[in-house]
Design a protein around this nucleic acid. Structure first.
Length: 818
RNA sequence: GCCAGAGUGGCGGAACUGGCAGACGCGCGCGACUCAAACUCGCGUGCCCGUAAGGGCUUGUGGGUUCGAUUCCCACCUCUGGCACCA
């Protein structure tokens, strides 16, 4: 072979193997009941145009892990697809006057090529594209199923609206302190609209339960906080007219301290409660509140505002007549939109009471405090204490007050213990074009009914004006919305909204099972074999969106008999974010993006993969370092040289060197195996680098060509195959080993070989390292102690004093205390 | 304010169950190869004092437990993320 042929040339090697793997279908995952299955899933990408570093960082370690599992003997399915409905396609259409479909599918084509360049083990036969009619047909079918089972419903309410995207958003898609749109970061506003919702709240309690799934603590916390369960009581007050006015409270033991009530300005009873003299004022306030953005309205430090309706309500525990106010600090969207105000024990109510001169009545007296005085107290006491001024319950101690209060209201029939959640139902309607049409028909006679299943999919028309007007583009289409009622057959109108794209991604893991299946969303045989997903990888930013939706979806489908089991994904692992070299988030506007394509061209995919696994902890991510990648490139070149060029120092091999090589090899194998299990990719590469350094030394000491060397090469290539699949395959082939390395089993650790026969005994005097002595493994504690005391250096530090105590840590360390 | 997560050399990061802090890599320094540069290879590289031998210090800060703490406990500081007038 010429010098030229021998050089490591990833640009020649990588496409060649990719082509061969594809031709041979070596990554096809088919049902095989003789093998244990492993469904490895990486979050599907949105086809935004180019694969960026974030995709590589998410996918290549996931791929390496999937490859490892395959070598461990699992039948691994690692599918890929595209979450291809969504706003960017429309925005591109508007900016560049190109059809969203054309833009999307061109991007998909480009990204397929880029994804192939990663050399991942994707089974492309299972690719699913959510904007394909054969995909969204089933998205629509699932919508209808949910509707028929009472889990999709319409509601008129104040919803979040993004004025830039011109569409409604789900509560989860409004983010941060300043309540901005998840996609475009524009502050959202409220609009009163009738929209479709899914009953996610029905599963609030179950979603809090993570038993049986191995998900990061962090995600569990985020979801738990998001769902925000609070325990308390629901209590029915009555207006003077006798209308029930239900409130939720976490402190039913403070009911006797309720000195007024506050309703959200939008509360339906406001109109009726308001006396004529107050009508104008109340109306003005309602107007003002409705115009305010959520940012203003929900700013916690804002001074309380509100107006008195002139109406009164009756406190059911003591029959007291208390004034009813409206204020924007009470939200229509949480609880019942009405609260009982207990100013003595709630800071918000306290501020409100002081501002408007309302009574502050103490009903809880903390045991360790001076008696509280409602008139003079400077702030509320959100307390734990003995009940006072509370009728029959006066003197109830703190630890029983809640329970007694609930029993009391239940006995009186004015309320009951209740649980409330912050989680809202999932708003699914979007007033945009590039999404799955909601398969419902509005008939003036028969109401709203689903399209009959055999007419699915309700196709998205190509010829629309997609400019965002605030109206659904489908509504503006001259003919599309006109149809006939599936019930009476008379003319009727289609729903012109499309679905939130999170709906498409809530079940894509099921479509991967059988993307060409026509009898249902997935083939039950495939489902039975592959589901649930064993390992799911993706970004943490989806914790309260996609990951809640997909869990909800699975549970809803389970209750309809479509899926089985309680959870769709057993194990979840999150990767962090690759930052730019300036430590800032990579973005085009900052100009700090690093294009993976250029790096692949310069270094090869294997180097890019290796560096992405090596440069940071996978779960944390970190700043890119364009010099750092040289280290990974160097490593691979060293491997190449070590395995392709004969050593200069061939010859006799010292048995010591051979067993040291075997020891290091099997120790590394142990470490690499452990790290694959725990997703610690950076130390996998580090361990392989370390072993290579040792192998270089052994090579120069005559190990080359020996049995130990052959074993090391064989095991080394298998270990690196998940990380650098192309180079491993190429070297494997050059060494005349059977195709393909990716069909080889993961090597077995030889425990015997990992054992050291000598150790360095660490000797400390008063906890400080003073000497290291080489002793045989398995040395007795007595012998270790004797050896330590015999050390000259130790004697020097003992300064003739007698040891007070000697601690021997078996085969590791001796600490002499004087 | 509440709930998570994280603070380790010039930099990215390592360290199993409380036992050699700084693996591996980047960068840097010295050397080999080369006419030269790049590549490659070898050696060194936490900080301070010291010519050296050697010594002292060191995992955000301050305490504690322990023979011994990056690791456990308490308090605090900083950063990141989430939630926040949620009754």
């Amino acid at each position: 072979m010429s010098q030229q042929d021998n050089r490591y040339n990833p640009n020649e090697i990588e496409p060649r193997w990719q082509k061969k793997w594809e031709q041979d279908g070596i990554y096809h995952a088919d049902i095989d009941h003789k093998q244990k299955k492993h469904y490895a899933l990486t979050m599907l990408p949105y086809p935004s145009g180019d694969l960026h570093m974030g995709h590589w960082f998410a996918m290549t370690p996931s791929d390496a892990r999937a490859r490892y599992m395959r070598m461990k003997g699992f039948n691994v399915m690692f599918p890929i697809g595209f979450d291809s409905f969504g706003l960017p396609a429309e925005n591109a259409a508007i900016q560049r006057n190109i059809h969203p479909k054309k833009w999307t599918y061109a991007n998909i084509d480009r990204m397929r090529t880029q994804l192939r360049s990663m050399g991942a083990m994707f089974d492309w036969r299972r690719e699913a594209v959510s904007s394909d009619p054969e995909y969204y047909r089933w998205t629509q079918w699932l919508f209808i199923k949910l509707f028929k089972n009472g889990m999709a419903y319409r509601k008129d309410s104040a919803v979040d609206w993004c004025p830039n995207c011109n569409t409604t958003l789900a509560r989860e898609q409004v983010i941060g302190d300043d309540r901005v749109c998840e996609r475009c970061k524009t502050p959202v506003i409220k609009k009163q609209l009738e929209q479709w919702f899914f009953t996610t709240t029905k599963y609030a309690e179950e979603l809090l339960n993570f038993d049986g799934i191995d998900w990061p603590e962090r995600v569990q916390t985020l979801q738990t906080n998001w769902i925000h369960r609070s325990e308390g009581a629901s209590v029915i007050f009555k207006t003077e007219d006798g209308d029930p006015l239900e409130v939720f409270t976490t402190r039913p033991d403070t009911l006797w301290g309720a000195t007024f009530m506050v309703l959200a300005p939008e509360h339906p009873l406001v109109e009726k409660l308001t006396i004529p003299e107050r009508h104008a004022e109340v109306h003005d306030y309602q107007e003002q509140a409705s115009r305010q953005s959520d940012i203003d309205r929900e700013a916690a430090d804002r001074e309380k505002t509100g107006v008195f309706t002139g109406g009164y309500a009756i406190n059911p525990v003591n029959g007291e007549r208390i004034p009813v106010w409206i204020a924007d600090y009470v939200l229509m969207s949480y609880g019942t939109g009405a609260i009982m105000a207990v100013p003595a024990h709630d800071q918000r109510d306290f501020e409100f009471a002081r501002k408007f001169g309302l009574e502050v009545r103490v009903v809880i007296q903390p045991d360790e405090m001076e008696p509280l005085n409602g008139e003079t107290m400077p702030e509320s006491v959100p307390a734990y204490g003995t009940m006072v001024n509370s009728g029959e319950l006066t003197s109830t101690p703190a630890d029983q007050s809640l329970q007694k209060a609930i029993a009391y209201i239940e006995k009186k029939g004015v309320g009951r213990g209740a649980v409330n959640y912050r989680l809202r139902d999932w708003l699914i309607s979007r007033q945009r074009y590039w999404g799955a049409p909601i398969p419902m028909v509005h008939c003036p006679e028969c109401g709203i009914n689903p399209v009959s299943e055999d007419e699915l999919p309700v196709l998205l028309p190509d010829d629309v004006e997609w400019r965002p007007t605030g109206e659904s583009p489908l509504k503006l289409h001259p003919t599309w919305r006109h149809t006939t009622c599936p019930v009476c057959g008379k003319s009727a109108e289609r729903d012109t909204d499309t679905m939130d794209t999170f709906m498409c991604s809530s079940w894509y893991h099921l479509r991967y099972l059988s993307p060409d299946y026509h009898e249902g969303p997935f083939d039950p045989a495939e489902y039975d074999y592959w589901m649930p997903v064993d390992t799911y990888t993706g970004g943490i930013e989806h914790a309260t969106m996609h990951l809640i939706y997909t869990r909800f979806f699975h549970k809803a489908l389970r209750d309809m008999g479509i899926t089985e089991g309680h959870e769709p994904m057993l194990q979840l692992r999150n990767q962090g974010v690759v930052l730019g070299e300036d430590y800032e988030k990579m973005s085009k506007s900052r100009g700090n993006t690093v294009p993976p394509d250029a790096l692949v061209k310069k270094y090869g995919a294997d180097t890019v993969r290796a560096y992405l696994m090596f440069f940071a902890r996978w779960d944390l991510g970190g700043p890119w370092d364009s010099q750092g990648i040289e280290g990974s490139a160097r490593w691979l070149r060293r491997v190449w040289t070590a395995f392709t060029e004969p050593a200069k120092a061939a010859g006799r091999l010292d048995p010591e060197v051979a067993s040291a090589l075997r020891r290091k090899l099997h120790q590394t194998l142990q470490a690499v195996t452990d790290d694959f299990e725990t997703f610690e990719f950076n130390t996998i590469v580090a361990a392989l680098m370390e072993l290579m350094n040792e192998m270089y030394k052994a090579r120069e000491q005559g190990a080359y060509g020996s049995r130990a060397w052959e074993e090391a090469v064989d095991v080394y290539l298998r270990m690196m195959a998940p990380v650098a699949p192309h180079m491993a395959e190429e070297l494997w082939a050059r060494l005349g080993k059977p195709y393909s390395i990716h069909h080889q089993p993961w090597p077995q650790v030889d425990e015997e070989a990992t054992r050291e026969d000598e150790i360095e005994l660490v000797v400390q005097v008063n906890g400080k390292l003073r000497d290291k002595i080489t002793v045989p493994v398995g040395i007795s504690d007595e012998a270790a102690q004797a050896a330590a005391l015999a050390s000259e250096t130790v004697q020097k530090f003992l300064e003739g004093k007698t040891p007070r105590k000697v601690i021997v840590v078996g085969g590791k360390l001796v600490n002499i205390v004087v």
